[in-house]
Write a protein that binds this DNA or RNA. Structure first.
Lengths: 148, 148
DNA sequence: GAGCGGGGTTGTATTTTAAAACCGGTGAGA
DNA sequence: TCTCACCGGTTTTAAAATACAACCCCGCTC
């Protein structure tokens, strides 16, 4: 489903993004990559994903330029998967999903991992879209301008 | 795939979020809802999704508290689907996907729809996670603190 | 009461995912 | 050097999700 053509999807960047990362596994792999995970076996163990699916997703993510295969950091014979610039730019997407989940998907007292600033160890404030004046924008303050 | 259990997914808000919206259709429906779309037939025509899948996704989104069914605005007999507070809070996720797509998935000169501020009609600056001091944070400036 | 549009449900074919067995290359130890 | 794990996959087969088309129900209009 992340790979089919809809009506006018060339036009909408959201749709085009979802063609590349619009399945749960891809974004979970990317999330783990942000946490420093780099090896096939690590992803396999952590995610509990089927081996063939993991291989397929890694291949797609490499093809999409989100991950790249690099020689192992420890000089071993295997290769590792590292986020490219393009992959790192997915950070706001991951943060958005994380903060939405934190805000809406946990009961009071139910614990979860937290994203904190490395500098002070404190949680990040909610990420919000800002206008050019630096003030937060709600969805109602924006509109999608379709191309002519 | 958006609906299975991984190793320790209760813990990670990203995983939990993706259980609810981790497939392309759900987020495309939400995207369209942000654009003011409210009716089954509108989603059907715009997305080119299969009818049964659309019905299923709308049902799930309602169950998840992201959409709610409300009486039609025009007093007709059918009902419409509107974003709840929880659904509206997905705005940063959609914006994140949109801006990533805009930045990485279009060739020079290739046109796409744009998200603009309603006030001045101008595109939004890139949304970025901010630290408590208001300065943008890169992924490397953060870490995920797992719960004890 | 026939026709029609909206909003679905119900089959059934096709595609994707999952699970598990298998395979090839490297490196360590006997 | 032989073999024995281990890592990183591929292949095979089963199960599930998706797509597509046909059908159905309801309220409305004519």
């Amino acid at each position: 489903m992340a790979r089919q053509k809809h009506r006018q999807d060339g036009q909408c960047p959201v749709a085009r993004s979802l063609e590349q990362v619009g399945d749960a596994w891809s974004l979970l792999i990317v999330r783990n990559a942000f946490d420093g995970m780099r090896r096939y076996g690590e992803f396999l163990d952590d995610l509990g994903i089927a081996r063939n699916i993991l291989a397929d997703r890694l291949r797609r993510l490499v093809e999409a330029g989100i991950l790249e295969q690099v020689a192992a950091a420890d000089g071993g014979s295997h290769s590792e998967y590292a986020l490219t610039r393009r992959g790192k730019d997915l950070f706001p997407v991951i943060v958005g999903l994380r903060q939405w989940g934190e805000a809406h998907l946990y009961g009071k007292g139910e614990r979860h991992s937290k994203l904190v600033a490395r500098a002070d160890g404190k949680p990040l404030p909610p990420m919000r879209p800002l206008g050019r004046d630096g003030r937060p924008l709600e969805a109602d303050d924006t509109l999608v301008k379709r191309i002519a």
